[in-house]
Amino acid sequence: MKEVVVLSGKGGTGKTSIVASFAALAQSKVLADCDVDAADLYLLLQPQTKQEHEFWSGQTAYIDNEKCNECGLCQEVCRFGAIENYLVDPISCEGCGFCFQICPVDAITMRENMSGHWFVSETRYGPLVHARLGIAQENSGKLVALVRQNAKHIAEEGNLGYIIVDGPPGIGCAVISSLSGADLALLITEPTLSGMHDLDRVLELCRYFGIPALVCINKYDINEKNSRQIESYCANQKVEVVSLIPFDNVVTEALVNGLPVVEFSDGRVKQEIYNLWRKVSERLTP
């Protein structure tokens, strides 16, 4: 069983559209949507939920005003500025429990947070593990880890060949949690200066964690000069550019119709994504 995680650094480069197409192309796989705070893969795979689980993680401090003697020690020690006028701002509270530990009159309790949900679903392409982080909740990295763990479990149980992970944008906590220990990272970029800048950082992150990477330039023809620059940058970095996907409005049309683009149209985009999956799967199974 091999795991590929699709990342980009910059958001909106086409990760989810490509993963949905891989879902239609790949045999024997489980899908994992690790973009838990803006999960969109389900919109294209139309899953039927088989299991729903609550995700409890972290704590929030709560001050009992009856017991509080307004000594102010909690406010003094809180480094997150979460306590003002003997009231906890639950959004700022990081749940460290420092205030709870030092309150001289035991007026503070720590309450568990219900931080979201995760799901195991069936799609016509195979099983999907996905999640929804609670509104303004923390610990997305832990939820991502939970999604990946369960996808791995399903792959092992069903003896499936691939875990295909739709990753979040950025390079922080949730991305690191999606990436660490994967077999391969597929980096989707676009020929804009922002896309190039962000590719450089996410590629460096892959190096940092020792994960081999491949690059795909999406919408390569919106600026062919920049695309050539990305190709020469990747050549210097010794990273293979495995695909150049042209800009085509069929990608959006497929999205509006709730279908992976490879099932929606027969054009160049489909051919290119087909080749891309072939190269990715070859790399995963040498």
Binding site: G12, V36, D37, A38, L133, E138, S140, P169, G170, A174
Partner: peptide, 14 residues
């Protein structure tokens, strides 16, 4: 602000 809806976004728009 960064994309998403989790802690970095909350911290930035707060």
């Amino acid at each position: 602000v960064s994309p998403g809806t989790s802690c970095p976004v909350v911290e930035a728009i707060k």
